[in-house]
Design a protein around this nucleic acid. Structure first.
Lengths: 212, 212
DNA sequence: GCACATACCGACCATCTGGTATGTATTTAG
DNA sequence: CTAAATACATACCAGATGGTCGGTATGTGC
């Protein structure tokens, strides 16, 4: 069924190629500066194929953000940081893992949705919402471990786990911004060190807990 | 001298108006999506005036980042957070001040250079460097207080003050990204609460200090 | 085998974009 | 008073951009 004859339309192939090209090109050039022809060239498809799969450039932006959410979810689900048995160790392993992938070319480790949302937050609400859903959805995957770590230390503060999970994402996004400005990945890694230290300090004293 | 007749060219007036318009429009629409005519319309000048003052759009980007650096430097120098006598209190007051200005429309409290650098970090090195200089220059204004706070607690770790200063900027930038994605300023304020808590925890135990 | 949907192609178009060329009013130096 | 420089204004242009449209090839249900 999925394997058709050589000249078959290969349903959805062009669409996937365009989405993957979008992730690469938009991270490097930004959403607005990326033209539809840039995308077609990178994906090796024609403009006709583009508009067959996406009604507009904005629609591609939404689809790219959704695609990003899916691929990153799979990527992080398969990542090794889930191995430790202690939830706090898993959380720290997550931060260490995020730090470990900040190497090489900035465009390669930067975040598609973080980049896009800065540009379109006011002009394209549909893209903005898709980006927000990706970021906050990823943050939510950390909540269980944070909550477990808090429970282990008898910290029961409603909403604190979700809040810390969001903060972790904020630090990662900000670290990428600083790395871009200073043109140096080390600036991002440095911030993740501070983040790890914050988490350790938060969970150090079991009696006080993470409240202000 | 500065006050000339009504129909005088008013030297530099158009330039300043364009720079101020750039800060507003680019924060809302992004650099690439902002056309030169957008800028001229907002500044109420003609295209001729634009290209009289700036040789290209990229040059305006650099000038806008520099202008941003100047105006924010003046703004923060005049801000009330310098009042406390204790350096740690000043640092915490800075974070509280940054939190207090995160209200209203997102474009109004977002950072020009943080927005721009995400878009142009790979395609316009001159703008990227100007943005980086603005961010890191502002971070440097915190170093003295951080260092003093560390000295008060006999913490002597070379580079730690600069590193924390940069981290604070990273968190602020990331908080803005998250606020844009979730379309809610509260998301940014929440991260600044975490940041303040981190700083307090760092300086709580005078013996251990901020090392990892 | 026939109607229909899907997948894709490539020419075309109106508009916008950054940028230029030329002209003009005002200020300033000598 | 003159010459040059400054600070604009206006008309214009070549190329790019998002998007449209008619067409073709292939697969699918009946």
């Amino acid at each position: 069924m999925p394997r058709s004859t050589k000249h078959a339309p290969e349903r959805g192939n062009a669409r996937t190629r365009l989405l993957e090209a979008a992730c690469d090109v938009i991270r490097a050039k930004g959403f607005t500066a990326t033209s539809i022809e840039d995308l077609c060239r990178a994906a090796e498809v024609t403009k006709g194929a583009f508009f067959h799969h996406f009604p507009s450039k904005d629609a591609l932006g939404v689809a790219a953000a959704d695609h990003w959410a899916e691929t990153t979810t799979a990527f992080f689900a398969a990542a090794p940081y889930h191995a430790p048995s202690d939830p706090l160790d898993r959380l720290l392993a997550y931060i260490a893992f995020r730090k470990s992938i900040i190497v090489g070319d900035i465009a390669d480790f930067s975040c598609l949705v973080g980049t896009m949302v800065q540009e379109v937050h006011a002009s394209a609400p549909s893209i903005r919402d898709a980006c927000g859903a990706s970021m906050l959805g990823h943050a939510a995957t950390l909540e269980a471990d944070i909550e477990a770590a808090m429970r282990d230390r008898d910290i029961l503060e409603p909403g604190a786990a979700a809040s810390l999970a969001r903060h972790i994402q904020a630090v990662i996004q900000g670290a990428l911004v600083l790395a871009k400005g200073g043109n140096d990945p080390a600036l991002a890694r440095e911030s993740l060190d501070h983040l790890a230290r914050y988490v350790r300090l938060l969970f150090r004293s079991s009696t006080t807990g993470p409240q202000a």
